[in-house]
Amino acid sequence: MSRTTLSQKTLSGNTQGELWHDHNHDGIDRRGFLKCMAWAGTGAFCVIRGGVLHSYGMSRLAELDPKEMAGELSFAQISDSHMGFNKPANPDVAGTLKAAVDKINGLAVAPEFLLHTGDISHLSKPGEFDTVEQILKDAKPKDIFYVPGEHDVLDDDGKQFLERYGKGSKGAGWYSFDKKGVHFIGLVNVLNLKAGGLGSLGHEQLEWLEDDVKHFKHSTPIVVFAHIPLWSVYPEWGWGTEDSARAHSYLKKFSSVTVLNGHIHQTMQKVEGNVTFHTAASTAFPQPQPGKADSPGPMKVPAEQLKSVLGITDVNFVRGKQALGVVDSTLE
């Protein structure tokens, strides 16, 4: 009974200011404390100033001082458009995607490009992809970089996605590019998922990643983006990537690494040493915070864990050892 109530509460988007607790079992040495936030919104605006990435929830950008938005490079992340979804949680996902585009176009400082972190479509139907492309044509930034979500590779192992968005990419669609001294890496972790498992990068992609970053100076800011979180948000619901630790091992040497994901339909941030993890909100519909509802997944939340994610409104944040830790800004 109480679970049902919680589920309804979180689904209504009442996620602001609540703390998500660490469930990380990825074996990475944790030098910093965690700062985790969740707020309702439709995407994220990111600006890099002095090599440090600042991220802002799209829903409250109107309140932001344009000075805060200026930097060496800015871009916007959108995610989880789920075009084709038409259930009560949001019967008009096209409308909310358009609203996200309007917000992007209304920014005082126009982002140089967009990242879409997957689940463009709901059922991998060509018409769904077409609709998203049509809506995004109205966005001021003309460069859009995509990675697939599991909803984009249904029934065809990602063939259609690769045809549409994979030009110049490697393997199942991974790639990297450079913008103003920042190295961006798009990864694919939604294919070849194993029974009972999590998101998966696979050996071939990891080999490529190791090679891709080998020649960069340690001071190069790195931004990695993929659909399923590359950190263990909540493995019980499949919200993590089984071989992400190996990916992180190749990125450890860099003083500033930012990891951007979607998939969980809510924003969260975590700082772990020199690596900052962000997940973006969906443009389509919210999902409950980890452990705060019966689904997704058959997992039942133990009573003591449930308490730990309830009613906590403040968090600790100690910047990692590296000088170029990430500054989080929530507009709050």
Partner: peptide, 12 residues
């Protein structure tokens, strides 16, 4: 015959 959801592999 074990099976799972290939989209949400935690479902087995």
């Amino acid at each position: 015959y074990p099976y799972f959801c290939s989209i949400h592999p935690k479902m087995t």
